[in-house]
Design a protein around this nucleic acid. Structure first.
Lengths: 113, 113
DNA sequence: GCGTCGTGCATCACTATACGAGGTAGCATA
DNA sequence: TATGCTACCTCGTATAGTGATGCACGACGC
């Protein structure tokens, strides 16, 4: 990803994470893969941003998580969206659309009114 | 603006600044006002982000600037987009649309293929 | 004359957050 | 044995937005 995009990404991680968790329970690594797939490869959140974001969402009560031993490979931490998480997702979605709309208006040059 | 939006804004300032300068020459304060108007009041870049961004764009050669005494009020620094700035604007626009599209795809949940 | 307000530019400390590197660990395969 | 993939976590660094502060000018009210 170019040097610009990593700045554009700021603030979108919770939105992206919550979005892929609408499908159901996922563990961290899998969340990153889903985001990558769904974005068409454009987004590949680094571990250094993904895990802190998951911890923060869990601390806020937006996600609940449980450790589970994989029969193969190391243990995984599975995340599930709570109802508070659903509300937060809705909020982030609204914020995003309003933001994207405002960018479009400003760049497009139509009167903002 | 909420605490989320200020993170979303990161990286968009050059795009917004260059966009309003398509109209012609503007000075710093005026650039902020235009962005505010065009965005419908959603964006109101703080001075602490606007001026450094203008200086950076000037240093990159995307903008040329001249001091001019206002007949009333203090002197103003007028900015004009260079041809390099036009190219940079096109690049930022492309980057933005690709970014916004990817967010929409990821949030929308369509296969990213 | 003097304080206050609005314009206009600039810089600073603070903050949020993305990145990459490094560490731990388990299992599979060569 | 060693290499590589999965899987988690944390740390140092860089980027860039915010609000506060400062300087300077002109206009207006008292």
């Amino acid at each position: 990803m170019g040097r610009i995009a990593s700045q554009l990404l700021k603030g979108t991680t919770p939105l992206l994470v919550l979005s892929v968790l609408r499908d159901g329970e996922l563990y961290g690594y899998e969340i990153a893969q889903r985001i990558r797939e769904r974005s068409g490869g454009t987004f590949a959140p680094s571990e250094g941003s993904l895990y802190p974001a998951l911890h923060a969402l869990e601390a806020e009560g937006a996600l609940s998580a449980t450790w589970r031993d994989g029969d193969k490979g190391p243990r995984r931490r599975y995340y599930r969206m709570t109802s508070a998480g659903g509300a937060l997702l809705a909020e982030h979605e609204a914020q995003w659309s309003s933001f994207a709309l405002s960018v479009a208006r400003t760049v497009g040059g139509e009167a903002g009114r």
